[in-house]
Design a binder for these strands. Sequence first.
DNA 1: TATTGTTATACTCTATAACTATA
DNA 2: TATAGTTATAGAGTATAACAATA
Lengths: 152, 152
Amino acid sequence: MKTRGARPIGMSLWETTHVVYREFERMLAAHGLNRATWFILLALDEAVHPTQREVARAVGISDATLTHHVRNLEDAGLVHRTRDPDDRRVQCIELTDEGRAAFARIHDDAMAFDRRMRAVLGPETTAALLGALDTLTTEFARPGDSTPIPRA
Amino acid sequence: MKTRGARPIGMSLWETTHVVYREFERMLAAHGLNRATWFILLALDEAVHPTQREVARAVGISDATLTHHVRNLEDAGLVHRTRDPDDRRVQCIELTDEGRAAFARIHDDAMAFDRRMRAVLGPETTAALLGALDTLTTEFARPGDSTPIPRA
DNA sequence: TATTGTTATACTCTATAACTATA
DNA sequence: TATAGTTATAGAGTATAACAATA
């Protein structure tokens, strides 16, 4: 068949995301985290006392998968869980002091990573890229799917 | 901490790639393929009688992982392997008639998918997006990594 | 009955190491 | 010795289903 012609956008999208995220995850790994646990910490940072279910929705994974990752974070001493006294079904996840310190360190690295991307693109191309990505997300998103994080 | 400020580019990149690829893989699944096996068929289409090792390099997976996927493709009747008579260590992978037909069908769907992306973006934004992705890939690629396909 | 979260289990993709067979 | 590929095994991330505790 010898498929020739313009390279599909999806190919470039896939390759770039892969290349960029391999570097990003290398950084996370140096802090003992992976993509999922980093997204969980971000979700914790953006909500006040979220339930595990809310965090799972924000991250885009199942409750069972979240339990798995939260256990790892807890074993690492970065988060602490307590049952909500007003509704003892609910687990309240909070960063420990150590977790807050780790978050701050990783957040610094993540911001530096973002600055590197913006610097190499320049402000106009950065804006164009973000606009294009947003257009594609709107076009292909399914209602009811949250998901910033899936298996890739 | 309440991290506020501009959304990181990586977040958008990740989310868009996820949303787009979930739809793409839904299409592939309707044809009985997944991302890895589709990339393998693409690699077969672009080279003449490649060895398995060459295909693995092109796809960006290990030899052992390739064996795994090729076995699935063979079980599905889409490819056929023969030992190279000139060097019996080498497996030559070829599409079967059924494989060629499946490839053509999926390729049509993949092109339609690409047209949909280009249509919603428009020609200028498409070009800008591809340029930005290329810039990022160049910035973050590591020499010696082939990789169009990894786990994401 | 409904909801929150956990456990048990399993599946998929991936890799490394050890191996076979060929060269 | 070196190379192409396979097998055996394991690990990471994910999910579904069944469950316990609580409401």
